[in-house]
């Protein structure tokens, strides 16, 4: 690739003939990575780090009682990002299905995740609307994850106390 110095040349020749091949070569409008993008990144990062700092005093990182293997009172709960996975395990009872739901299904999902670029190869269809199948699958995955999370939360909130 030829390096084009950015300063003052971000907009090349106006008379460029746009063809199917070169339409995606360059976006309509560009800016230098610095300062435009870097500044926006810094805004987001600063917001996040402030949030972390505030939260570490407002809601300190938890440290519950020391580990006790002999407890019968404690209710184990996963972290929130494992909620959907944990909830999914409830739908797979018994010897055959536990291993299926806990390991096989997630493994298949991860393999499919790796394969996404080769499963959806429709050329020049970047927009979500012009490739409805991939988009619907993606939305379904998001919906399933969110629904499972909500179910896990409701199950945890409704757990009977002895």
């Amino acid at each position: 690739m030829v390096y084009v110095p950015a300063a003052g040349k971000s907009k090349p020749v106006e008379e460029e003939v746009i063809t199917e091949e070169n339409v995606y070569d360059r976006p309509d409008e560009t800016m230098g990575f610095f300062p435009g993008q870097v500044l926006k990144d810094t805004y987001v990062f600063t917001f996040l780090i402030i949030a972390c700092a505030v939260l570490s005093y407002a809601a300190p990182a938890p440290l519950t009682a020391p580990a006790d293997t002999a407890t019968v009172e404690y209710v184990p709960r996963p972290e929130w990002f494992f909620f959907f996975y944990e909830q999914m395990l409830m739908f797979f009872p018994g010897y055959a299905l536990v291993s299926f739901g806990a390991v096989v299904v997630p493994t298949i999902f991860i393999v499919l995740l790796f394969a996404v670029p080769w499963l959806d190869r429709s050329p020049q269809h970047y927009s979500a609307i012009s490739r409805p199948f991939a988009t619907v699958i993606g939305i379904l995955v998001v919906v399933i994850v969110v629904l499972n999370m909500l179910m896990a939360v409701s199950r945890i909130m409704n757990f009977p106390t002895a």
């Binding site: 560009t30 800016m31 926006k40 990144d41 990062f45 996040l48």
Partner: peptide, 21 residues
């Protein structure tokens, strides 16, 4: 620093940099 990047959607691309940060 001076590579041209898309001007539109710059906020969307802060997600990746946030992960890095």
């Amino acid at each position: 620093l001076y590579e041209p990047v898309p001007k539109r959607g710059a906020w969307v691309y802060t997600l990746g940099s946030a992960v890095l940060g």
